[in-house]
């Protein structure tokens, strides 16, 4: 009996060692690339630090500056505008696109649609964003060229503080809708066909089927898409950086762009970390609220 226990313990020890060794690459990577940066983000706001000179402890000064900084209201406001425009756009249009493509009976055609919609997601954002600025340029862009051919006036796609949101929304739709589309497409494929057949037998029309069968059953995916899109939009950087450089003025300067400028162009790492911490807390609060609210609308029970 004792021998058996000893063998069992030995086996368990071997299992533990190999388990930890298998885990170690991921664990070390997690510690270096996630845990330490998170801890640093919590610590750095207490210091003035510019990468070269020794960090100087400043207590809560960076937080005081953060709350007194009038630019913060602007950049958080701009980010909220993006949130109000881009999150519903991606969440709703992604679902509609996925539903339409899923309804295509011809397999080859369906695959073509799927590929065409997803393709922009794999293209480098920076290069496409710069190409978009050429397309939307007021005087030399081809979009305004064709508008002029139609007898219309130039549209200030990149130079009007409201119009730039439309331009960025168009870019964001083209570039990123494929990702939400793909999540929805997979989610829709998991809905048993028998549900649709039963509904049709009961006389339900396409709209009723979509609103009464499809949408409720795809709510877990909608919830997931809403969460990741919200977090993604809170951190929006590439679009304003490459398309508008935060302008005109500061009208599209987002929190992430501000963090980059403060920390990496003005070398104020401590204050940059303070803004990053503010953004982190905001994202966490919104995500927790979304998580708590899911009970009211997300359906996990398929039976």
């Amino acid at each position: 009996m004792t021998k058996k226990i000893s063998v069992f313990k030995k086996k368990q020890r071997w299992d533990n060692i190999s388990g930890y060794l298998f885990l170690s690459p991921a664990l070390i990577a997690f510690v270096i690339f996630i845990a330490i940066p998170i801890i640093m983000t919590l610590v750095l706001p207490l210091f003035n630090y510019n990468l070269i000179l020794p960090a100087e402890f400043v207590g809560l000064d960076n937080f005081k500056d953060f709350f007194a900084d009038e630019d913060m209201a602007i950049v958080f406001g701009n980010t909220s505008k993006f949130l109000l425009i881009l999150t519903p756009m991606h969440c709703i249009l992604g679902l509609i696109l996925a539903y339409m493509v899923q309804r295509v009976k011809h397999t080859a055609l369906r695959n073509i649609f799927r590929g065409v919609i997803y393709f922009p997601s794999i293209v480098t954002t920076a290069s496409v964003a710069i190409a978009f600025t050429y397309m939307f340029s007021t005087d030399s862009g081809f979009i305004n060229y064709y508008l002029r051919q139609l007898g219309l006036n130039n549209v200030p796609w990149l130079t009007d503080s409201n119009m730039v949101y439309v331009t960025i929304a168009i870019f964001s739709f083209w570039k990123f809708i494929g990702t939400t589309f793909l999540y929805y497409f997979i989610g829709l494929n998991n809905i048993p066909e028998s549900y649709y057949e039963s509904a049709r037998i009961d006389g339900a029309g396409p709209v009723q089927i979509f609103t009464r069968i499809t949408v409720p059953l795809v709510t877990p995916v909608i919830f997931f898409v809403v969460i990741i899109t919200t977090i993604g939009v809170f951190q929006i950087f590439n679009e304003p950086y490459f398309i508008t450089n935060g302008g005109p003025g500061v009208s599209t300067t987002t929190v992430a762009l501000k963090i980059y400028r403060v920390a990496f162009q003005q070398n104020n790492i401590g204050y940059g970390a303070t803004v990053a911490l503010g953004l982190f807390i905001l994202i966490m609060m919104v995500t927790v609220i979304q998580y708590l609210m899911q009970n009211k609308w997300v359906v996990y029970d398929y039976e």
């Binding site: 071997w14 060692i17 190999s18 388990g19 060794l21 298998f22 170690s24 690459p25 990577a29």
Partner: peptide
């Protein structure tokens, strides 16, 4: 089998460095 597993796991850990 155990030794092999351990070796693979160790190799993975070392490869990171």
């Amino acid at each position: 089998k155990k030794v092999l597993m351990l070796a693979i796991a160790a190799a993975m850990a070392v490869s990171l460095f």
